[in-house]
Simulated scan of single mutants.
Amino acid sequence: MITRRFALHAIASAAAVSLVPSLSFAQDVSSYPSKPIRYIVPFPPGGLTDVMARLIALNAGMALKQSILVDNRAGASANLGADLAAKSPPDGYTWLAITLAHAVNQSLFTNLPYSLEKNLAPVAHLATSPLVLVVNESNPAKTLAEFLVQARAKRLNAGSSGNGTPPHLGLELLALNAKIEVSHIPYKGGAPSLNDLLGSQLDFIVSNLPECSTYVKAGKLRALAVTSAKRHPLLPDVPTFAESGLPGVELENWTGLMMPAGTPKAIIDKVASEAIKSVKSREISDRVAAMGFTPTGLGPAEFGEVIKKDVIRWREIVKVRNIQAG
């Protein structure tokens, strides 16, 4: 009898103990956030992703009544910061800013220390921006067709912000669909490549719209086509690649928010709600639209589908075009 009572008591005690983490966990979720949040941006300060993250951090931080501190961890083609976030505790206090480049990195690098789909959880898809084929204003080509005549007559030099970045991907899509060969010159960022295009040291760039629109409007660069499905409000007179006869050159860079896999769904949903409200607010949506972004505000499930599709799509293109990591 004593043995039986002892056994029953042990079982009851074990059950009670097993409930403690759950109860504590539930309390943590209901009181979240109770301390400052780290928002890892795997790019240098001042870039497009960094600007978006800081806007979200400020707006969502006020709504959540907690400080959200942006932590720039650039390096290793944006993998340094992503790996740091992937290996952080799944408690909701680590956020990660990601872009299309992270989806491409899954096939561009063969030995990544983290998996985008296994070690990180999608929270919110925030905004998109197209890319633009731009040439120096001194270039006689006024249309994509005229540019392609040049590209088929001789091998042109094209710059990008680095191997595997959206501008490089746009370049490869153009080469693939137009059946041209170009000499790709990777730079450490979009600004240096634009400077060389402005100085006529490059023939063209497939540039992020927010980076080149100012030069286009000033007449220093000429935009020949945009990679979005529709014309962009900032460049209404510039046709899409599809309108210009190359429907396969469709690509939009995006930025979003993820957290470590295993983060409680209640926390993910709460953060997603506030991030989406922030990016759709008049203050932020008008500001990012003026920069060339289109606010999207997709939740965890929809964002997960975007990531999945882009990982699959670019795995094939990386293989076909033999795109190498820098």
Rank of each mutant, 00 (worst) to 15 (best):
Pro167Trp: 04
Thr263Arg: 04
Asn177Ala: 01
Ala325Asn: 06
Leu144Lys: 02
Arg4Gln: 09
Ala63Thr: 09
Leu112Cys: 12
Tyr32Gly: 06
Ser244Val: 02
Pro42Phe: 12
Ala225Asn: 03
Pro21Thr: 04
Ala289Arg: 03
Ala26Ile: 10
Leu298Lys: 09
Ala218Asn: 12
Pro192Ala: 06
Met1Asn: 06
Ser13Arg: 13
Val271His: 02
Met1Leu: 13
Ala78Val: 04
Val135Pro: 10
Ile307Val: 15
Leu209Gln: 05
Gln324Trp: 04
Pro233Ile: 15
Phe147Cys: 11
Phe25Glu: 12
Leu246Tyr: 06
Ala191His: 10
Asp269Trp: 07
Leu19Cys: 10
Ala12Thr: 11
Leu251Ile: 13
Gly47Asp: 14
Ile11Glu: 13
Ala223Arg: 02
Ala261Trp: 01
Ser273Pro: 00
Val41Gln: 01
Gly292Asp: 11
Lys35Met: 07
Leu80Val: 07
Gly245Ile: 14
Ala289Pro: 01
Asn72Ile: 00
Ala272Gly: 05
His184Val: 09
Val29Ala: 05
Pro42Cys: 05
Ile205Met: 09
Ile56Arg: 00
Lys142Gln: 14
Leu8Pro: 03
Glu117Lys: 14
Ala76Gln: 13
Asn72Leu: 03
Ile40Cys: 12
Asn157Arg: 15
Ile2Arg: 08
Ile37Leu: 08
His9Leu: 15
Asp237Ser: 11
Ser160Lys: 00
Gly297Tyr: 07
Ser193Leu: 09
Ser31Thr: 09
Lys154Gly: 07
His102Asn: 15
Arg4Leu: 12
Pro260Lys: 03
Gln150Glu: 15
Gly61His: 00
Leu173Lys: 00
Gln201Asp: 14
Phe109Cys: 06
Asn119Gly: 07
Val279Ser: 01
Leu156His: 10
Tyr39Phe: 15
